[in-house]
Nucleic acid binder design. Sequence first.
DNA 1: ACCTTGATGTCAGCCGCTGTCATCACTCTA
DNA 2: TAGAGTGATGACAGCGGCTGACATCAAGGT
Lengths: 192, 192
Amino acid sequence: MGRWEPNAQARLRQAAMDLYAERGFDQTTVAEIAEKAGLTERTFFRHFGDKREVLFGGSERLQEMLVASVTAADPGTDPAVTVAAAFEHAAEDYFPPVGYSRQRQQVIDANPGLQERELAKLDGLAAAMAAALRERETPDLPAALIAETGVAAFKVAFVRWVTDPADAPLLGHVRSAFAALGDVWSFAPGRI
Amino acid sequence: MGRWEPNAQARLRQAAMDLYAERGFDQTTVAEIAEKAGLTERTFFRHFGDKREVLFGGSERLQEMLVASVTAADPGTDPAVTVAAAFEHAAEDYFPPVGYSRQRQQVIDANPGLQERELAKLDGLAAAMAAALRERETPDLPAALIAETGVAAFKVAFVRWVTDPADAPLLGHVRSAFAALGDVWSFAPGRI
DNA sequence: ACCTTGATGTCAGCCGCTGTCATCACTCTA
DNA sequence: TAGAGTGATGACAGCGGCTGACATCAAGGT
């Protein structure tokens, strides 16, 4: 047996997640993951760019969803509204149950390297959305600003979602965050 | 000679920066940095947590400045205004000449790992500012939101600063970004 | 002169990650 | 049905980042 058993990637991911949750990320070696999946360390690195990447699979899909939302929106719509709507849409369709997200976040929060990777993914999201906005004739500065601050707001909403004792749905947190965004930054000019 | 020559940390930093700029980050080994500084690899890791950290020294000072600004501001001031003012203040006092920042950014942009570390530092900034706002009785959601989106806006301003062919000062870019922030997110409710 | 302290050197070792080449299962084609 | 091609995996060697443990050396105080 061994070779040619199907779903190598899925088996590796499962083995990795189990070990990360069970004994922590640093205390897990790639060799152990591979062995548990009945494969080789070398094969692990053929399926995942690095040890951290296991936890961030599927983030490309989120990015595609967000970009698609922005691109598909009515060209007349305000770009900020477009981005807010894109995140609200993703909040409904993309994310796994809060229990899974909590466990995953627990692993990430316990490791600085994983946090760095997560931030990088979010930054990639912002860059992609900014590009999508520019495609829609939004000028550079507002495009970058809306994308970056939109991601920042979503980040806040996400944290509140996984830490919410009331288990309110993500969509609600996203709506609150974007609503508050409008209030918070609407001060009169000449402030300094 | 060798041992007990002064300024070990500064020599290591200088050697590292030179090598990173000259031949790239990945193409530089810690052993080479240490040798160029007349020290040992082991000693490098006594002064810097890892190979990347060399490029991010002094970020604690920026964080302290921002937090101090927020903490020192008139308690009656709107928190968003406080954060904007903190960044404007930092833009004037903290940053090195644009030439140095450009060279540094060039090294960082060429390496994903360095970008991750930079994002982590920015995230640390946001967390610290959020805490400072909470200290001033700003409720959780707006505190997190203002801190995170404030950092996001600053990020945009910084990028525009180092890529600005006109060499306009950072302060102007920061002001533009925060001004645009108010415009951009001030849409009417009931949008979706 | 001795002792303490802190920075450095030395050595061994783990582990993430990569390049290279062989090997195997499967498929297509003659 | 044999043989060639293809793609995934195994096996092996090696680099380099990073750490722990212990020895060593310069300086300051007693």
